[in-house]
Design a binder for these strands. Structure first.
Lengths: 174, 174
DNA sequence: TTGGTAACGTAATAACATTACACCCAATCA
DNA sequence: TGATTGGGTGTAATGTTATTACGTTACCAA
């Protein structure tokens, strides 16, 4: 589902994360690696509890929510993973080194996720923030709608009703 | 908390909503009115369950979650209320008629919420979406950080530690 | 008045997330 | 080497947010 977008699927590799963690002097533990592997294996945003179950499969034993959330927290802190707020879910980041804008286009119909660099966006934010002394930290930009593929299939298969609905609802995760 | 921002607190009035609903031929029921009143009385994003309790106080009886969520759904559908995704909370919209961008600056320290019109943002989104055939519906732009007031007080009162932390955490709701 | 539809009431449950505390292990240093 | 310390993990319990399902009520129109 997270395929044919403007940026290639996910450019993040376990090896690059390993290297970055070494450089930063932080521990890329077995659990954190497994969590990232699991996220990379899914093709799209993954809920914390889906990740949990993936970890359980990989480990062959049950794990509690904090285990998944802690791994996610670490991966987010270091920019390897981004939380998709409108989905309560997580995706590997395309640009782990660059703390840039990271705008996400999210298809409400098929769940596809496209991370896109929007140049000029950051400047616009900063410029506007400056006018009232706001200091910007985390930026969340999520644009929901219908991807090209689904516009075609939806129009052909089921008329515009479903697609129109998908324009405004949170949509399915799949 | 949601006061001295770039846009005046909340310009939405019950009367204007009443009028718009009449124009649109939709029912602004007692419950929906109470919900909106409650949202206006809070000064900032309100969680669904806080709204629930406010409704209970107003009605003098207990109400279930669906009651609150249904009212919120209606108010959102018609642009009277915006959901703040990074807070799991809701605020009255400044511009009920204009389905424009609605970017939110959110202070992680005091919870202040500033709705800001970012001209050019929408065009940037549309332009970029066009390049890969994405049809944009709902837009979510939330910029977390520290408001001007809190930069001063935080620096004076507690050093930069707390403020630095607030730059990256979800922060309190208060 | 009756029939249809939108709105609401209520109980139960699902989904998402955090707290608190115990334990383990690796790095450091006396 | 042994003690200490701090980060990481295991686990139980709980908190918070959101939805499903179904019955009832209220409103409007025929």
């Amino acid at each position: 589902m997270s395929g044919s977008g403007p940026s290639p699927a996910y450019t993040l590799s376990i090896e690059s994360v390993e290297r970055i963690c070494a450089e930063r002097g932080v521990r890329f533990t077995a659990l954190r690696r497994l969590a990232l592997e699991a996220l990379l294996e899914f093709n799209g945003p993954v809920g914390a509890y889906d990740l949990l179950r993936a970890l359980e499969r990989k480990l062959g034993k049950s794990v509690g929510p904090p285990t998944a959330y802690r791994a996610l927290e670490f991966l987010q802190e270091h920019g390897f993973v981004t939380r998709i707020e409108t989905r309560n879910a997580f995706v590997p980041s395309s640009h782990p080194d660059d703390p840039g804008v990271g705008a996400f286009f999210l298809c409400n119909h098929c769940g596809a996720t496209f991370e896109v660099d929007l140049p000029g966006l950051e400047a616009e934010f900063a410029r506007r923030a400056e006018t009232f002394g706001f200091r910007v930290g985390r930026r969340v930009v999520e644009l929901q709608g219908i991807c090209a593929d689904c516009q075609h299939t939806a129009a052909a298969v089921e008329g515009q009703g479903q697609a129109a609905k998908a324009m405004t609802t949170k949509g399915s995760r799949g």
